[in-house]
């Protein structure tokens, strides 16, 4: 029995023949996804994951288990760049997803064009939550800069929601002062002078306001505001809609390098596309996010969202690429106004 080239080739072929077998095995085995998201989406994705798992099982026969990771949007983006093996990123703002490309080379530059509505299957905005009976009489932005009013909002250096809060306040400052940026900066500075605690993420700020009883007004995503009212019914919290706010468009993306490495691209892409289905959009509305594409879901949940004048980051701030370094970069406007 001569074992020269032939057996080596035979062994290599035998080993290679196991690869498709292993692949077939993998198709039948449960698959796991990691959705790395921002802080307030816990309940949304818990519900959505259950629906998607049932959908995927029905479509393919395969079980899918989706793990969730939540934190400040900026912190989550850094964690993914540092190696957190996210299959999908569902973050609070486009800039945090952009860095997955610019700093991490984990996704392509055109990631935002891969899904409808600039890859934002839902939108949201910023409203006020006040205590029972609104004892400080807070009705609009000028009321929260008054002396003695404590404002709860997270840290815009780490929280995506906090950046939307900041920009909404700044947008009001511009509008109230004929687009005078210095006046707008002063206004936002006055807001932050009334902030006693800077939580790293939005859910922590909810805890600070609703559970720890700190502050008179809480600047929150509207879904987080509704959740606070539902979770703490005995507190008698009330929602106040300011005269102007900002349209937040939290985007989603597949993390290409990770899904290609794990072989999970197909299920990860299907997961995000499911957000745009009627079922996905309905779950979105149920959790107080504004459905972005489904007319049926928009109509169904329209009554729960108060009418509000919304500005966009593009029209007021020139987009995230400009706003991020200018306002939240090291030495940016936020650093200038928040010196304590």
């Amino acid at each position: 029995m001569k074992l020269r080239l032939f057996p080596v080739l035979a062994a290599a072929l035998a080993a290679l023949s196991l690869a498709p077998a292993a692949h077939a095995q993998r198709a039948a085995r449960p698959v796991e996804l990691l959705n790395v998201s921002y802080d307030p989406t816990r309940e949304l994705y818990t519900d959505f994951n259950r629906a998607f798992a049932a959908h995927w099982k029905k479509e393919t026969g395969q079980d899918v288990r989706i793990r969730q990771s939540h934190g400040g949007s900026g912190s989550q983006a850094r964690a993914i760049i540092d190696g957190l093996a996210a299959d999908v990123a569902t973050l609070a703002l486009a800039f945090d997803v952009d860095v997955l490309h610019s700093r991490g080379q984990l996704i392509p530059a055109d990631w935002q064009s891969r899904l409808p509505h600039n890859s934002s299957p839902y939108t949201s905005t910023i409203v006020f939550v006040v205590r029972k009976g609104n004892p400080k009489g807070i009705k609009d932005w000028p009321d929260i800069v008054k002396p003695g009013v404590a404002v709860v909002t997270p840290n815009p250096k780490t929280s995506g929601g906090a950046r939307w809060n900041y920009l909404a306040a700044y947008a009001y400052g511009l509008k109230a002062n004929n687009d005078d940026h210095e006046a707008a900066k002063k206004f936002v500075g006055d807001v932050y002078r009334n902030v006693p605690v800077l939580d790293p993420a939005a859910r922590g700020a909810t805890t600070t306001f609703a559970q720890r009883g700190i502050g008179d007004v809480f600047l929150a995503w509207d879904n987080e505001a509704f959740l606070a009212l539902r979770e703490f019914p005995n507190e008698g919290l009330e929602i106040v809609v300011p005269s102007i706010s900002i349209l937040a468009e939290p985007p989603v993306t597949v993390v290409d390098k990770n899904v290609d490495k794990k072989g999970s691209r197909k299920v990860a892409e299907a997961y995000l596309k499911f957000l745009y289905t009627e079922e996905g959009q309905d779950i979105i509305g149920k959790h107080f996010y504004r459905p972005a594409v489904s007319e049926a879901a928009k109509a169904k949940y329209a009554s729960q969202f108060p009418a509000i004048t919304l500005v966009t980051i593009d029209e007021v701030f020139g987009g995230w690429a400009k706003a991020q370094p200018e306002h939240f970069g090291d030495g940016g406007v936020f650093d200038q106004i928040y010196r304590r």
Binding site: P196, V197, G204, G213, I214
Partner: peptide
């Protein structure tokens, strides 16, 4: 309020 703020800040620091 001051007490709650101090406590919360310590809590955040620990977290």
């Amino acid at each position: 309020q001051k007490l709650r703020v101090l406590e919360r800040n310590l809590e955040i620091k620990d977290e």
